[in-house]
């Protein structure tokens, strides 16, 4: 049994209670949601915090998936499993179910949350890549109920670093809904439940035969999950074709920034960035058409 260093623990009874505690305790405190990223780090003593504020009792307040005509809103405490099982979400953005099927295992998915995933800001985090692909907006609440909304690019400021300041928390993720959308996610892992060697998400918005907009998000190939604006620029206004996907793949390979590690070499990861970009674009287009 690996044991963490001593800490104090309190269960928050409301979002404002949690924020109040965060404000008072400053950088020595952390929220604990599913705990599947935080607790392993604490047990390995890679992270030590004096205070943990448990927000799991706020699931009633922060665990929801609301699909509207312009926007899908997902509460920060929505569990992986709820994202996997939501038919509404799958209808709007099948990329979520694609991704959730390859995130960790059922035990982790029963507890781990969307908010925890984004706030962990791990460069390999699959949901961050999904949210990047879908151009998500993150709603951050601070003391006194003040809320600000930031894009994914603004939200992730570096590996394991986010725009959420001391005394703030992420409460909701908003996904803009536009017509003609298809989306898909694919991951290469060494073993089921392992973190990605590389994974890619793609979303396309078609109008008739033309790509109105397209986005690709990659995980595990840079300091944060990467959106690639050049791909969007190259695809907009074009008709989907294998050669176009090739071109997008080439851009993905060139613009990502992987490192060699136990999961694979730089060359292999660039190759995967291209391969998975092609595959997910192909599937996203198929889905947009059907």
């Amino acid at each position: 049994m690996q044991v963490p260093a001593p800490f104090e623990y309190e269960r928050a009874t409301s979002v404002d209670h949690a924020i109040g505690l965060l404000e008072r305790l400053g950088s020595t405190a952390r929220l604990i949601a599913g705990g599947h990223s935080l607790l392993p780090m604490m047990k390995l003593r890679l992270a030590n915090f004096d205070y943990l504020i448990d927000i799991n009792d706020l699931h009633g307040e922060l665990g929801y998936i609301e699909t509207g005509p312009d926007e899908v809103r997902i509460g920060a405490l929505t569990r992986h499993r709820e994202l996997l099982e939501s038919t509404q979400l799958a209808a709007a953005f099948p990329i979520f179910a694609d991704a959730e099927r390859v995130i960790a295992d059922p035990v982790v998915r029963n507890r781990g949350t969307l908010g925890g995933s984004l706030c962990q800001a791990d460069p390999s985090e699959d949901l961050s890549a999904v949210c990047t692909t879908l151009d998500a907006r993150c709603v951050i609440r601070g003391p006194g109920g003040a809320e600000r909304v930031v894009s994914m690019e603004e939200f992730h400021v570096g590996p394991y670093e986010t725009a959420v300041a001391d005394g703030e928390m992420l409460i909701e993720v908003r996904l803009p809904v536009r017509p003609g959308c298809g989306s898909a996610y694919e991951k290469v892992e060494r073993r089921a439940g392992d973190w990605a060697v590389v994974s890619a998400g793609a979303a396309v918005w078609l109008d008739g035969g033309t790509i109105v907009d397209a986005r690709v998000g990659l995980a595990a190939v840079g300091p944060n999950t990467t959106g690639i604006p050049e791909i969007s620029a190259a695809l907009r206004g074009r008709e989907p074709s294998e050669s176009l996907f090739e071109q997008a793949g080439a851009i993905a390979a060139a613009s990502c920034d992987p490192v060699t590690d136990q999961r694979g070499s730089v060359d292999y990861k660039r190759h995967l960035a291209a391969e998975l970009t092609r595959r997910t674009l192909r599937r996203a287009v198929e889905r947009a058409r059907s």
Partner: peptide, 16 residues
């Protein structure tokens, strides 16, 4: 040692 946890030292599951 680069295999100091079961996150780094992979053992197969029923899915493999």
């Amino acid at each position: 040692c680069l295999g100091a946890s079961l996150m780094d030292y992979l053992i197969p599951t029923s899915l493999e």
